[in-house]
Simulated scan of single mutants.
Amino acid sequence: MQRPEPQSFDRVLSSMCTEPHPAAREAAERYLATNPGDPATYEAVASLEERAVELLATLADHPTPTDAAGYVTSGGTEANVQAVRSARNRHDASDVNAVVPESGHFSFHKAAEILDVELRTVPVDDGYRARTDAVAAAVDSDTALVVGVAGSTEYGRVDPIPALADIAHDAGALLHVDAAWGGFLLPFTDHAWSFGDAPVDTLTIDPHKFGQAPVPAGGLLARESAALDALAVDTPYLETRSQATLTGTRSGAGVAGAVAAMEALWPDGYREAAERATENAAWLADTLAERGTDVVEPTLPLVAAALPESEFDALREAGWKVSRTAAGELRVVCMPHVTRDALRAFVADLDRIRE
Rank of each mutant, 00 (worst) to 15 (best):
residue 6 P to W: 14
residue 9 F to G: 14
residue 11 R to W: 08
residue 24 A to N: 06
residue 25 R to P: 09
residue 25 R to K: 15
residue 25 R to D: 14
residue 27 A to T: 02
residue 31 Y to T: 10
residue 33 A to V: 02
residue 41 T to W: 08
residue 43 E to Q: 13
residue 48 L to W: 10
residue 49 E to D: 09
residue 55 L to K: 00
residue 55 L to S: 02
residue 59 L to D: 04
residue 64 T to F: 06
residue 71 Y to S: 04
residue 74 S to R: 11
residue 79 A to S: 15
residue 83 A to Q: 00
residue 87 A to W: 03
residue 88 R to G: 13
residue 88 R to L: 12
residue 89 N to I: 09
residue 91 H to E: 14
residue 93 A to L: 07
residue 96 V to E: 13
residue 98 A to Q: 06
residue 103 S to I: 10
residue 111 A to I: 06
residue 111 A to S: 08
residue 116 D to L: 12
residue 123 P to C: 04
residue 128 Y to S: 00
residue 132 T to N: 09
residue 136 A to K: 02
residue 140 D to M: 10
residue 145 L to K: 05
residue 149 V to A: 03
residue 161 I to A: 12
residue 164 L to C: 06
residue 173 A to S: 05
residue 181 W to P: 00
residue 186 L to H: 13
residue 188 F to E: 11
residue 194 S to I: 06
residue 198 A to D: 06
residue 200 V to D: 00
residue 203 L to Q: 03
residue 204 T to L: 08
residue 211 G to N: 07
residue 213 A to G: 06
residue 215 V to M: 14
residue 215 V to T: 14
residue 216 P to V: 10
residue 221 L to F: 04
residue 221 L to N: 00
residue 224 E to Y: 02
residue 232 A to H: 10
residue 232 A to L: 10
residue 235 T to M: 04
residue 237 Y to M: 08
residue 239 E to M: 02
residue 243 Q to A: 10
residue 247 T to S: 11
residue 262 M to A: 07
residue 263 E to S: 00
residue 264 A to H: 04
residue 273 A to G: 05
residue 291 R to S: 09
residue 296 V to Y: 05
residue 301 P to Y: 15
residue 302 L to Y: 11
residue 303 V to L: 04
residue 306 A to P: 03
residue 310 S to G: 09
residue 315 L to Q: 02
residue 331 R to I: 00
residue 333 V to N: 15
